[in-house]
Design a protein around this nucleic acid. Structure first.
Lengths: 229, 229
DNA sequence: TCGAAAAATAAGTATAGACATAATGCGCCA
DNA sequence: TGGCGCATTATGTCTATACTTATTTTTCGA
């Protein structure tokens, strides 16, 4: 597979041993120095390989404690978060965008809780529809700190999704997947029946420790989000 | 934050420059040697920091091409996949398990498609319910290569989920999130109304290039899957 | 002028050596 | 016996150097 002596080769061999049962679950594996001697490579190379496996959840490493094979590994899966336009275009479809609403107002309590904000804070509320080949793709519901995106900024032609990535980039946050039934407006926008099961992604974005924006993306029926193990 | 000269410090400084606009989107940043000289550290340290950012989707690196800040970064989010018992216990609840059905039979076409299997292949079909503090947590629907888990293996007390992790570990696969309405049996098992919007996770597991098992986990209403950015 | 070969470049990786850090666990002392 | 502190140990990381590899740019010949 990989030329011997590379960290990928060491990783592959380690994986092979785990699968073959040479390194059984719950057991401790030889330390880096031993493996480096056995494989005839530098300790740093072994370190790179084992660190990679540990990041994937396939090994547990602790200083002094050594490296062990977890009994029930907690695997890590990753998925990619692109802006919606890229997501649509990546499927070979044409992206369309329609701003449905742009107003100032108090958010529902669930949103306030997610944002952890004072009650009366100025908040802009946007509703927009993303289209793929002219069919509804995703409904964007966003609450936004009014100081981050002042009223001058218009989201008529560029989605808040894209504006934020371009203007407030590289910020942290958290994400959650959930299912929700289509309410009246969502059903109308996404062209489905009220009560239909829809996949939604909720995201809160932080900047300097404070929540900037909360967004709920509700996808059209049948949408799937793929991740790689 | 981090003591200077560490790769974390370099990463933090790189991130700061991106946020501050010193390294604007679309632009190319200085090469590793230059940054190493500027920060007074080894090139390997800069490499580690920039590689880490590239893995998170915050930088794009190409040999000879240099390192650039993507205009619309495709962020990577990760979530943890534990066995369901651990998932429940991690919430501080007691895990329960009930096998509802264990039979041999032909899978529905959607499952066959996901598995990419010949029509008549022997397939075991399991249905099981996971409980959290005696309340329905998740419905497990699994199709399994009969040669992987022969009839002797009983899933009465141990879930297939756990059995597989312990016996066929470290295999690859793919995962998808979707929403589906509760059908009759699911509504009964999960104690909700038919048609309720439920979050489901589908996973196909491969071993040596061949599909071993397909599982659909349908969660009780209100369930969320969290990921970290 | 076009295209192929050669040079240049920046990231990718390997290595040996050193020191840092976090657990572990042992031994000492009360 | 119990608890505290220090020695031990395996991983974590940094450095300097060298070589490799992918890709771009330049050069040169047809």
């Amino acid at each position: 597979m990989d030329r011997p002596g590379t960290w990928q080769a060491v990783r592959a061999e380690a994986l092979r041993r785990m699968r073959a049962g040479d390194w059984p679950p719950g057991g401790r594996i030889p330390d880096e120095a031993e493996l480096a001697a056995e494989f005839g490579c530098a300790r740093a190379t072994v370190n790179r390989a084992l660190r990679d496996l540990a990041e994937a959840g396939l090994l547990e490493r602790r200083r002094k404690g050594g490296t062990r094979v977890p009994v029930t590994p907690i695997r890590k899966a990753t998925f990619e978060i692109a802006i919606i336009r890229q997501d649509v275009e990546g499927r070979g479809q044409r992206h369309g965008y329609r701003l449905l609403e742009d107003a100032l107002g108090p958010p529902p309590p669930e949103v306030l809780a997610a944002l952890d904000w004072p009650e009366g804070a100025g908040m802009r509320h946007l509703t927009a529809l993303h289209l793929a080949d002219d069919r509804p793709f995703c409904l964007e519901h966003r609450w936004l700190d009014a100081t981050v995106a002042p009223a001058e900024v218009s989201f008529d032609t560029i989605s808040a999704n894209e504006w934020l990535v371009r203007n407030i980039p590289y910020s942290g946050g958290n994400i959650a997947f959930l299912a929700r039934p289509a309410d009246g407006p969502a059903a109308r926008a996404l062209d489905c029946a009220p009560g239909d099961a829809l996949l939604a992604v909720e995201r809160t974005t932080f900047r300097d420790g404070a929540a900037i924006t909360f967004v709920r993306l509700t996808y059209a029926p049948g949408h799937r989000v793929d991740a790689t193990l």
